[in-house]
Design a protein around this nucleic acid. Sequence first.
DNA 1: ACAAGCAGTTGTAATAAACAAGTTGTAGAA
DNA 2: TTCTACAACTTGTTTATTACAACTGCTTGT
Lengths: 137, 137
Amino acid sequence: MARDPKSFCSINLALEVFGDKWTLLIIRDIMLGDKRHFREILQSEEKISTNILTDRLNMLESRGILTKGNDPSHKQKFVYSLTQKGIDLLPVIAAMAQWSLKHEPVSAISQQHTQPIAEGGPELIGRLSDELATKHL
Amino acid sequence: MARDPKSFCSINLALEVFGDKWTLLIIRDIMLGDKRHFREILQSEEKISTNILTDRLNMLESRGILTKGNDPSHKQKFVYSLTQKGIDLLPVIAAMAQWSLKHEPVSAISQQHTQPIAEGGPELIGRLSDELATKHL
DNA sequence: ACAAGCAGTTGTAATAAACAAGTTGTAGAA
DNA sequence: TTCTACAACTTGTTTATTACAACTGCTTGT
């Protein structure tokens, strides 16, 4: 699954993990939308398909960005949790949100969701990270 | 070239612009490597191919992230410059570098290049943005 | 018993990328 | 002035990746 990288540049290594159209949307759903199950992520407005979601969840698990645990309420259900490596993607998400809010036609709903994170500064990011850590780790 | 987005979520809109394996490497080269010509970007260690570079440069120009100007020293040479929209990607690059430096096997050379940007904090980003503005705008 | 919900699989089509070669024009040296 | 290297592409072919839709097999709650 993880082939050898084109280079060991920090930017390239990051892109080899989440440099595609779907991976960070999944992280966003888990991180900001508090979605923890396959079906919940599937229902997001971008309409990711099941095989891509399966593929990316497995990839993210194999790279140590999230973990997959059993849901006691349903034997065929899994709970996806972020690792610290996954939680540490919050600043990346925040920076991307900030850029889009300035330069792209972000919807009012998304603006409400992401503006605080984008403009909250390092302290807010720190607080949210701590919250995520108690929830997920 | 730019199809209608899957959603108007800020994260998704960003991904539709630079959510691929190559685009941000080009931005990195222009921004941090001070590469301004086609051939210079082509020579980076990731060995992007000419058709992809052409495609991405045109896409980035059409989206207002960079501009293409004539090089007075050579009539068939173009100089690629960042716009403000392009310069504003610096925090995204910095966040990605910070994540990789913490979690991925970044080479010593890349570490030297990106650690200052990743850990310099908002003031350094501000200063670098100003530098880029005088160089490119 | 059965419909609804669960994660995941399979097959096929569409898209993107890699690779090799060619194009058109420029610049500088012999 | 012709030769060579270089500039940014462009084209065509092959390969790899991704997307979409339909379908599995298992598990719940009614």
